[in-house]
């Protein structure tokens, strides 16, 4: 035991390290399926495909709620007054500065489409409520304006916009 040559030492150490390394790689690879299984499964992903919403039945001043990928989407048909209110705000004074034009699709000013989830802690805000007559979150008192921008309260960001486009003047595709 005491007279092991250093060459043998190296060979032995290499063998031990190689075995340990290969074993560690295997253990790490075994974690992949255990972690991946928690991601959305194939049927959930397929059910998250884009949806089309017909805007024709939504009257001016009305806000409807639809669901896409299990998230509530607010579609607001804004009145002239609401659009004006949204446009005349001094963007620089906002907590999350964004002009109204960046919040709607060009040429479709009346239509505000936002994900109806408060950016504070995920509650669903109430429509047409609060100080700014946009959305008001009853959980912790965040108030959004008619452009869905945060104006007051603990929420840090404006209501996010889902990916969508107009397929015709009265129809949008979300997703």
């Amino acid at each position: 035991m005491t007279t092991v040559s250093s060459a043998e030492h190296t060979r032995r150490d290499f063998l031990y390290i190689a075995t340990g390394a290969v074993g560690a790689v295997g253990a790490a690879a075994a974690l992949v399926p255990l972690i991946a299984q928690m991601n959305p499964d194939a049927s959930t992903v397929a059910a998250g495909a884009p949806i089309e919403v017909d805007l024709a039945p939504i009257a001016e001043g009305q806000i409807v709620k639809v669901f896409w990928r299990s998230k509530p989407i607010f579609i607001s048909h804004r009145s002239k007054k609401e659009i004006e209110e949204a446009q005349k705000v001094n963007v620089g004074t906002l907590p999350d500065p964004e002009p109204d034009s960046a919040r709607v699709k060009q040429g479709h000013d009346p239509w505000l489409v936002v994900i109806g989830i408060c950016t504070h802690l995920g509650c669903i805000p109430l429509a047409h409520q609060g100080e700014y007559n946009g959305f008001f979150c009853p959980c912790h008192g965040s108030a959004y304006d008619t452009s869905g921008r945060i104006r007051k309260g603990p929420a840090p960001k404006n209501l996010p916009l889902p990916p969508y486009q107009f397929v015709s003047d009265t129809k949008i595709r979300i997703g």
Binding site: V4, L15, Y16, T19, V22, G26, A29
Partner: peptide
């Protein structure tokens, strides 16, 4: 393939470890 490689390495490691205690 992976398991066969690992089994081979384990086998030689085992041989090595046991060889040293056996020898004296």
């Amino acid at each position: 393939i992976f398991l066969i490689v690992l089994a081979g390495l384990m086998y030689f490691t085992k041989k090595k470890v046991w060889h040293e205690v056996e020898k004296p």
